[in-house]
Amino acid sequence: MTDWHAPDDLVARYTDGSLPDSDAWSLEKHLESCTGCATRVSRAVAATATGAVLADVRQAVVGAAPTEQAHTAAAGDGLLAHARLWSSRHLVPPVADSRWARVLWAAGPAVRGAWLPAVLLVGIGAMALAYGADFAGARPLLLALAPVVPVAGVALSFGAHADPLHELTASTPSAGLRLVLTRTAVVLAVSLPLLTLAGLALPSYGGPGAAAWLLPGLALTLASLALGGWLGLRAATAVTGGGWLCAVLAPALSPPDGAVSAALTHQTSAYLGGAPAQGAWAAAAVVCAALLAARGTAYDRLERR
């Protein structure tokens, strides 16, 4: 830092303890940053009666490396240190690693749990129906079920019933609406592409396109979140998801003429097909988003049920 170094007499007086406080303090500050002077003082001290104590402690300290308290822990630390060193040279920094792991962990109880297999089951089941069983109504069926999938994901994402750490989570500053939306985003990010791709892969016999369910899905999800502010998320998703299934599937499953697939196609066309229907879903989504924004503080309180 500076060119100043401790003169020999200062070192000597510090070593024998006769240096007054004010000078000792400034020398001590200097020693913190000047290894040269530190070494000189240490050498001077080692030449005094204290040298014996220093040698004793030195032996204990150097011996503490491989033998003492935690041979295994030390070895483990060493391995870890090497791994960290290696990864810091060759990969992304380990801090980023753990941060991503934490984000993934926080983002989705639904994605960790039974919901993800359920999404896959819906997609794969539709494929199997279409190609394995030659069921013409596979795509309408998928379109009818698809909007419920993200709603179910949302139900499994937040609240005391879904998250074993809910009390802890709810007490963090980032809990509340922000966390709900984060988890919803994760659910949507997983389910939208998967189900839309599955829909595209299915043979079409007329009826709405594979992406027709996206707006209804979004609207139902937002409706669940908005309703959740009053009813609690679980009840809200039951209302919206159940309501949708009743409206779409119930008439189709008991058609007067027995043609289930034709009835399904008709139902999904009625609910999803065409610009007016899609426009109505978009409007519903906007209304629900506005409601959610107005009711968002409800998620800041701990759910009591």
Partner: peptide, 26 residues
Amino acid sequence: VAAGDSAAMAALYDRHAGWLHVRLTR
């Protein structure tokens, strides 16, 4: 030292233990 080198620890100790001892003694 972080890699477990005893000789490095000994060198570090010889450089700093003395003045740390005096400072602690004060």
